[in-house]
């Protein structure tokens, strides 16, 4: 299996998988650790970005256009997801519940 190395601006080659996973981890951290709903939404997008990187590179490694097609579809779906998310967050705003995840505590045990 060819090494999963990408040329990078720092002059050293980086592992593509590591890049993708790092993006994913950053997104994960944003979703789980941040309190603002919009920031969490951004985190979701970051995660998708990470996945796209991995898929794109692997598609190149295997020479399989299906992977690239998958990336396009995933990006489209992520966009739809962002729309839905924004819609819900706006609705939350309109209902007067603010934009922080911490204020969503009415539904509980």
């Amino acid at each position: 299996m060819p090494p999963r190395l990408l040329p990078s601006p720092w002059g050293r080659e980086v592992n593509a998988l590591a890049v993708g996973l790092a993006l994913f981890a950053a997104g994960l951290a944003a979703v789980v650790l941040r309190g603002q709903l919009l920031a969490m939404l951004l985190g979701l997008e970051l995660m998708i970005a990470g996945v796209s990187v991995i898929l794109t590179y692997e598609a190149g490694v295997f020479g399989d256009p299906a992977g690239l097609a998958a990336v396009v579809l995933i990006i489209a779906i992520a966009a739809a997801e962002a729309v839905v998310g924004l819609c819900l967050i706006l609705g939350l705003h309109r209902a007067g519940l603010g934009g922080r995840a911490g204020s969503l505590t009415e539904l509980r045990e």
């Binding site: 789980v32 309190g35 995840a101 911490g102 969503l104 505590t105 009415e106 539904l107 509980r108 045990e109």
Partner: peptide
């Protein structure tokens, strides 16, 4: 049961 109903707890 999980008290408080905080979203971040669910995600964790």
């Amino acid at each position: 049961s999980l008290k408080g109903g905080r979203l971040n707890d669910y995600l964790w």
